[in-house]
């Protein structure tokens, strides 16, 4: 596919995602019923959980593309990896800012060492390292390889971090008043959640394609200017 087509597809998907997100916002403000024990604050759920899911999807894609880049050495894979990683950072930031806002109401504190929250925070820092390595290496070729190594080690470290933060939590039980989500979701809440998951995923895919075509254009510009200088 040419960059033009990807750009177009990305724009379409992003627009669909944004409109869909608008619908989700409407649903979660006006349509869905209020949860009984937590009241209104539980509505943060409908942006918090999809953002978490999307960031994990994005970081997973970034690690996958990084691994394939080291294997196949196709420039396009590296561009895909950096685009996905940027998306992961964006959605992880949403997850990490909405989480404490909900936690303050549900738990009484902004931060508890809730395993998934902690894992996302550590992932955020791992991918911060990914971008720092990329941007501070003199030789861009080398930077791409090094960043890919960071992403792969980060991805393979996730199970260990996940298990360890859960284990830590079991050692030091935090004063949890209310569980973050109920065991089963009533119908309309589930519908809203699924709609929101769909909206975030489509929005991410669209913006990912836009970001990817941006990288494509950038490298095109690079080769063009190199040809011009030769």
């Amino acid at each position: 596919m040419s960059t033009k087509k990807i750009l177009l597809a990305g724009t379409m998907l992003a627009m669909i995602g944004l409109v869909w997100l608008g619908v989700v916002y409407w649903m979660s403000f006006f349509w869905v019923s209020t949860e009984v024990t937590q009241g209104i604050a539980q509505r943060i759920f409908y942006v918090h959980v999809p953002a978490a899911w999307t960031s994990f999807l994005a970081f997973g894609l970034a690690a996958l593309f990084s691994g394939m880049y080291l294997w196949l050495r196709d420039e396009r894979l590296d561009r895909a990896a950096v685009s996905a990683a940027e998306g992961g950072m964006v959605f992880a930031t949403i997850m990490l800012t909405t989480g404490p806002l909900w936690g303050k109401i549900a738990w009484g504190t902004y931060w508890t060492w809730e395993p998934r929250l902690t894992l996302t925070l550590l992932l955020w820092f791992i991918f911060l390292g990914y971008f720092l390595v990329r941007s501070s290496t003199e030789n861009p070729e080398k930077g791409k390889r090094h960043a890919a190594v960071v992403a792969i080690v980060g991805a393979l470290d996730i199970p260990f971090i996940h298990l360890s933060v859960i284990w830590f939590r079991s050692l030091h039980p935090a004063p949890v008043v209310i569980k973050p989500e109920g065991p089963t979701l009533p119908g309309d809440m589930l519908t809203t959640l699924l709609m929101s998951l769909g909206a975030f995923t489509v929005l991410f895919l669209g913006l990912f394609l836009l970001r990817y075509s941006l990288e494509n254009l950038r490298s095109e510009l690079d080769t063009r200017s190199r040809h011009a200088s030769v």
């Binding site: 916002y25 604050a41 509505r43 943060i44 942006v47 953002a51 800012t97 806002l101 909900w102 109401i105």
Partner: peptide, 9 residues
Amino acid sequence: HVFIAYAIA
């Protein structure tokens, strides 16, 4: 908190 969360997102 809900509004701020949605606005941040």
